[in-house]
């Protein structure tokens, strides 16, 4: 019986080892077949996502010239969503030739930005051209976007003592003679700065410039300020203008409704760390009374203990 069993066991072992060999062989074969594919850097089956680029020009209030990029890619649901970590090449046109000036990587929101130099190569019409490209990105399909804009100047003026609170924005561009020359019919938008963005000052906050390149707006008096001094930062913007891109300018005045400081942000309340006095008083009286009674009882017991000696 025992020997028989042993033989059976051995047979089983033999069988399993044979099986293992077979699987090993198959696995090796699969690995060998797959190896060339694995070695390819950008495998064909790892589909690249369809991508799109947005390129815009922004001249900030400090006169710095910037470009802003937004990269989007089609996601699993088929929608265009922000594409992070896309590698972007930025080119500038100089003498009819595209020169690579920088490579950028998009952030989590699919955004990237860079500051441009002050003197840019311009063409005859005083325009300069920028191009952004996605090239050879492992995750996104190639895409490119071009931009051709002209520099302009926007100034926002206000008189802090003005009771009518008139905001005046002036838009000029450099004329052929190098002198500033007013820009007409440019749409200037007036905003106040808020914590997370720019809020329109009122209902009709878009004003077109007149022949002198001026746009004016009377600031409403009910805009709350974010501090107790009533400071407001007003921003005038020409937004996504075909010729000039986006141009910003800002100015400050104490024209806001001052912030009413909360007298006691942490009052004694049920939701607060500190309990209302009435509650403390109630607990102190009730439980103080009970515990005093306990101590009286304990005191009596001590007396009981001491009285034993009398006997």
């Amino acid at each position: 019986m025992e020997t028989n069993n042993r033989i059976n066991v051995e047979r089983v072992e033999h069988k399993t080892s044979e099986k293992m060999k077979k699987t090993n062989f198959i696995l090796t074969a699969i690995l060998l077949i797959c190896l060339p594919f694995l070695l390819v850097k950008n495998p064909v089956w790892a589909q690249k996502k369809e991508s799109s680029l947005q390129l815009s020009f922004l001249k900030k209030a400090d006169q710095s010239k910037n470009i802003l990029l937004t990269v989007k890619a089609r996601n699993e649901a088929g929608k265009f969503a922000p594409a992070p970590n896309a590698s972007l090449s930025i080119f500038i046109k100089s003498n009819e030739e595209w020169l690579l000036i920088k490579t950028l990587i998009s952030d989590l929101g699919g955004k990237a930005s860079m500051k441009l130099a002050d003197d840019l190569p311009m063409d005859n019409e005083k325009y300069f051209s920028i191009m952004a490209k996605i090239e050879n990105d492992s995750r996104y399909e190639d895409a490119e976007e071009e931009l051709r804009v002209k520099e302009s100047r926007l100034t926002l003026l206000l008189d802090p003592t003005d009771t009518n609170r008139i905001l005046t924005a002036t838009v000029t561009q450099t004329g052929n003679d190098g002198e500033p020359m007013p820009v007409q019919e440019a749409e200037v938008k007036f905003y106040v700065e808020r914590l997370f963005g720019k809020m329109p000052v009122g209902e009709e906050f878009v004003v077109a410039t007149d022949a002198a390149g001026k746009a004016t707006y009377a600031l409403p008096k009910n805009i709350p300020s974010s501090d107790t001094l009533g400071n407001l930062t007003i921003v005038a913007v020409i937004e996504n203008n075909e010729t000039f891109g986006t141009v910003e300018s800002n100015a400050s005045a104490k024209w806001g409704v001052p912030l009413q400081w909360e007298k006691d942000p942490f009052p004694r309340a049920l939701w607060e760390p500190r309990a209302p006095p009435a509650m403390i008083l109630f607990f102190a009286i009730v439980f103080g009374g009970i515990w005093l009674t306990y101590f009286f009882v304990i005191f009596q017991l001590i007396k009981v203990h001491s009285e034993t000696k009398i006997k």
Binding site: V297, Q300, V304, E307, T308, K309, I310, K311
Partner: peptide, 19 residues
């Protein structure tokens, strides 16, 4: 507690029990 059953001890016990 060294209870010896003196009247005083009884009295104290009764008092504390009532309380």
């Amino acid at each position: 507690l060294g209870w010896t059953g003196t009247p005083m001890q009884h009295k104290r016990l009764e008092l504390t029990m009532t309380i």
